[in-house]
Nucleic acid binder design. Sequence first.
RNA 1: GGGAGCUUAGCUCAGCUGGUUCAGAGCAUCUGUCUUACAAACAGAGGGUCACAGGUUCGAACCCUGUAGCUCCCACCA
Length: 886
Amino acid sequence: MELAKNYEAAAAAEKWYQHWMERGYFRSEPDERTPYTVVIPPPNVTGVLHMGHTLNETVQDILIRRARMKGYNACWVPGSDHASIATEARVVNMLREKNIEKSSLSREEFLRYAFEWKEKYGGIIYSQIRKLGCSCDWERVNFTMDDHYYRAVIKVFTDLYRKGLVYRGARMINWDPKAKTALSDEEVEYKDLEGKLYYVRYALEDGEGQLTGESITIATQRPETIMGDTAVCVNPDDERYKHLSGHFAIIPLVNRRVPLIFDDYVDPSFGTGALKVTPAHDINDYNLGLKYNLEVIDTLNEDGTLSDAAQVFVGMDRFLAREKTVAVLREQGLLVKEETYPTRLGYSQRNPDTVVEPRISTQWFVKMRELAQPALEAVTQGDVKIYPGDRFMATYKYWMENVKDWCISRQLWWGQRIPAWYDGDGNIYVAETETEALQQWAEANGKEEPSPADVGQLRQDDDVLDTWFSSWLWPMEVFRGITEPGNADIRYYYPTSVLVTGQDIIFFWVARMIMAGLEYEHQKPFHEVYFTGMVRDKLGRKMSKSLGNSPDLLQLIDQYGADAVRFGILISSPAGNDLLFDESSLEQGRFFCNKLWNAMKLVKLWEERQAEIPDENDNFALQWFEHRLREASRQLEELFRDFRLNEALKVIYSLIWDDFCSWYLEWIKPAQGASISAAAYERTVSFFEQLLQLLHPFMPFVTEELYHLLRERTEGDDLIVRQLPAVAEPDPQALEQGRLAQTVITALRDARNKNRLKPRDPITLHILTAQPAAYRELESILVRQVNAGALHYTDKAITGSLTLVVDADKFFIEADKPADTTAQREQLQKDLLYQQQFLAAVEKKLGNERFVQNASPAVVENERKKKSDAEARIKAITESLESGER
RNA sequence: GGGAGCUUAGCUCAGCUGGUUCAGAGCAUCUGUCUUACAAACAGAGGGUCACAGGUUCGAACCCUGUAGCUCCCACCA
């Protein structure tokens, strides 16, 4: 067979993904095995995968593939989220490009466009997930607007309403004037900015309605809201203002007379100590308004322009109105001063350029306290385990203990429409269907059932539900747990095994899933949560469209191959920490694929060169690698258990590159033109298979490809389903022997290098050791690896040679070239000094009675061993130095 | 304002229960090599006062306290 010079990623990926699909390896059905279940954090249906997703999906696929290879019934449920605000915004933009305004469409027409859009772009995200090699069960795709899912959301809303956990109320909410919708507190992102603080003078009137000639100066960042002022507030202990009790202030521009109120909410040291109170447009002012029964004047329209109530600048955008207001105030001499001021502004997470407005409106809320309590306990009591560590425990706890009610209505069309109907008197009927709502209405009006004429009596709420109100049901409803309670799937797959997600959505999603799971399934939704870090660019900045630092995943896959992308993103991703993404790590992944490819080529070369010859020369290498493999497998078990996946990958990388390729293959490589023993060949192929197996979850394509190239496979013998063997105990003796061989070889090569002996220059090697047996079985390896013409054992120093000491053994290198021993002697001196200091430290410790008494026997024993080892080495080095002097 | 975390080689980070064969990895750098799988490679090397100052301990990168710098989360004083 002719093998290509390099590994070709694209063709292999295409071929094997199709093969796996055809064989149905991703498919999962309940059976007698233990399930291992993962539900994907559903990405936005019309989105594309970014690097954060790439990391998440890769991690999930690694866990799923390894579980599959360990005999679990692995089930990974894919799907996507309707992302109401983001998707609706994109559809609105798309329509605008076609010169269609959303306002000119009916709800039904708009939704038709939206579904068209979803059909057109909704598949992109799935094809990208496939490109990455993810082994999802594609027969289980769920979308949060699927019919059953829609019904589940409605059912839960209705149920919570019945339980009194959902209610409608007027509240100060965060308003996105671009999307024209309410946002939950969590959807607001604050940015630090340089703001401006304007000092404005309000004239004062006494209780008789007479201007006093005095004035009071307030400080504000938002002068355009002064038209909504309904009070001025000062601290009751503020001496400057005490005499003004009972006075009124005159609001400029609108000449409104408002009371002066006294409340210790006001900080006398800030600004002028006087606060303008605008209950409609500030949460704190709103609370003051409630306390003092102030009028609420809403001076803004829903699109962020000034409303009729503002009286001036009506219809003008809020920011332009701010400039105009300032100009007028300045003209009228009411602007005392303006200063720059560091502030924070809230932006809409869904429209990042849009400043959020606090606004009063009637919305639907979920009462959180009762739901939060059990969800808090589930985590604090360890029922749900969070990785890494307890780092998020404190924040989770704090949030859950201080949780506020959740605003779930959104003024959009794309989403589950709130199942609440209103009659002409404003009474509310919540039901899963309009028919049921009408029935309720009929009963409330003393009828047994509604007559056909009554249809049209009720009007459904126009709003839809927050997307998170659907995604919090995800681990249940993907198995129809809400709409078909107790079905076979939900019983088998729930609770899921692990949730892999970003730490940024711990409150949006993770906490709420736990609440919903406990409420509706009476069980946690997952056993473990693994938080990945944020993917940043190599300068540590967030990936964002505006910075242009977010790479195109498909392009990266084209360039490096999916395996290399998976490798690159994972290798630089320490558990739970942010990772700085750098394409050089992808390159490292591509090189790794190539290394594997070349190793395979080498082994294949030997396939034709097998002979039934004794393999005693290879025993050493075979023994050593067997145990090295066991050792690494054990490590991997632990690392996987703790979700330290990047370390696991490093272990495998080094096992393959260093131990297998650089040492093992060189050790068993037959001499030029010679044959390899059939037994050693067989073991080598078997080792290779085991390595590919360990690596497979991380780099599925290249490993499957090589697995099939290594030898002929029968139908169904695919790496993806090959079961991992039980891990056996490694023999420390064998590992130690390997370490010794490597140390000796490296030291000898170093000595050659330092003495400018070319790799081709032959040498004669003499070994002075008390245990020649230890070297007998690696003689042939040694000779080949350091290019020695001959190897002898000796009982005395060889004069005129290079000397080096490894452990207690001495090595002498004889070469044609005269040896320059100066460097060698310096090295020996340096080693000697280190060993002496080391010994002194050990002796001091052992001489310390309190150490010997307090430390554990194993530690003391280890110190004794260190002592004797160091002594032996010092003796050997000293002897070498002395013999060199003679 | 409150809380959490971080600070180890030029860069990115490991270092889990304190014990000098434990100060490590990858990348980068330097030297040598086209050695019969791989120059996308091979063989080697150099490089660190473990942020700073104290303390606990027989013993500290690791535990405690304080200081400085950075990051994130929460709260939102106009």
